[in-house]
Amino acid sequence: MSERSFGLQAPPSLGVLGKKRYAMVIDLRRCIGCMACVLADKAEFEVPLGVWRTWVQYEEYGTYPNVRRQFLSRLCNHCDDPPCVKACPVQATYKHEDGFVLQRYERCIGCRTCMVACPYNARHILPAKRSNPNLPTKVVDKCTFCFHRVTQGLVPACAQTCIGRVRIFGDINDPKSEVRKLIDTNPTVVLKPEKGTKPQVYYILANRSGLEPAKVFKNLSAQQKEDLKDHQEHFENYVGR
């Protein structure tokens, strides 16, 4: 267990008896890249265009005819030692004792330090204009592991909608839970374990080496590089400045 614990960060609960520690297993052997998880999330939270709470990267490798496509579903890792919580100057983000890393919109000042701190790019800024005027604007948002659903006894929307049962959600501290059994019986990896964040999204058969950021950047096509520039230029208008 981590000795590092700051401010609003609930103590790491991974493996602590009597404590819940919600986690997700993403079994990439079963992923077909249908993006239903992305859409479910968009629908559940009215996630605006251009930003994502969850997304799916894919990579094609091999030489024709021996080619293969590998997916990698991404979302907030709800780290046991989340750097975003430490970085926020106004306590706008915090870690729930059951492991959820959550955001308090009414406190967020939009300094984007949490976005900088997150090694997984799991945070985004909400635009100045929303289709529903009651929704928050111009503050940082992120995946909540569907806290509102889990507290009602449901699983997150992405796990609920996944047709291949790729995303399995549950309490990793419960030896009878499906996530615990999957982790105990399969080799799993987490993203960027060397950053010391203790991420709680476990992947089965992730092609990690192929999806490291440096490799992605190197392999961008000319069109993707142009799109990247446009995306950055769009940001200032997007947040209404």
């Binding site: 430490k86 306590q91 967020c108 000042i109 939009g110 330090t113 400045r241």
Partner: peptide
């Protein structure tokens, strides 16, 4: 202040009940 996406909320940085001392931005404030 004007780099914040919600510039009006810069005032929160001056309220001790908002302070989060593990953040370098708070040290800077």
């Amino acid at each position: 202040i004007f780099d914040l996406t919600t510039p009006g909320r810069f005032i929160y940085l001056f309220f001790p009940n908002y302070w989060h001392m593990s953040s370098p931005l708070m040290w800077g404030t």
